[in-house]
């Protein structure tokens, strides 16, 4: 075996979880990991979403009986939290496109930071859109 071949770090497929966890991660690695997790969650949600709207075929009563569950405060809060997944996947997706098509490799770390700032602002804005009626009701408007 040549010298260079010895220097190449290899690892057993058995320990890939451990190896992956021990790997030094920069913003790009985290973006990759979060992009996968949010993507998987959104895919699961899409299936759930089609299933939960399927009562639309059986008319008003069936649909609104089902929707009652989704109008409870904990589930409304979950819908807001889902927006975190949507926002991360959207903004990081835009970042990926910029890296691929617009020389974004030069500024991808800055883009990652901006994504978080824009994401937090949009998350709070959506919170206002979703709960403004409750907020106004609370203050007697």
């Amino acid at each position: 075996m040549s010298e260079t071949a010895k220097k190449i770090k290899t690892f057993d497929q058995k320990d890939w979880v451990k190896e992956n966890l021990s790997y030094h991660k920069d913003s790009g690695s985290w973006a990759w990991i979060y992009h996968r997790i949010t993507g998987l969650a959104l895919m699961g949600y899409l299936f759930l979403h089609i299933y939960s709207l399927s009562t639309l075929t059986s008319g008003k009563e069936a649909f609104e009986a089902k929707m009652k569950t989704f109008l409870s405060p904990p589930l409304l809060a979950l819908e807001w939290l889902l927006f975190v997944f949507v926002l991360f996947h959207s903004l990081n997706g835009i970042r990926v496109v910029l890296v691929d098509w617009a020389d974004g490799a030069k500024y991808h770390k800055a883009l990652y930071r901006y994504s978080w700032i824009i994401g937090i602002i949009l998350f709070l804005a959506m919170g206002f859109v979703m709960f403004s009626h409750e907020i106004f009701k609370l203050f007697g408007k």
């Binding site: 929707m67 989704f70 109008l71 009626h133």
Partner: peptide, 14 residues
């Protein structure tokens, strides 16, 4: 997301 949530009814009533 905006369309379904700008009012409590918009995404949840028949």
């Amino acid at each position: 997301y905006i369309l379904m949530h700008y009012s409590p009814d918009s995404g949840h009533t028949y």
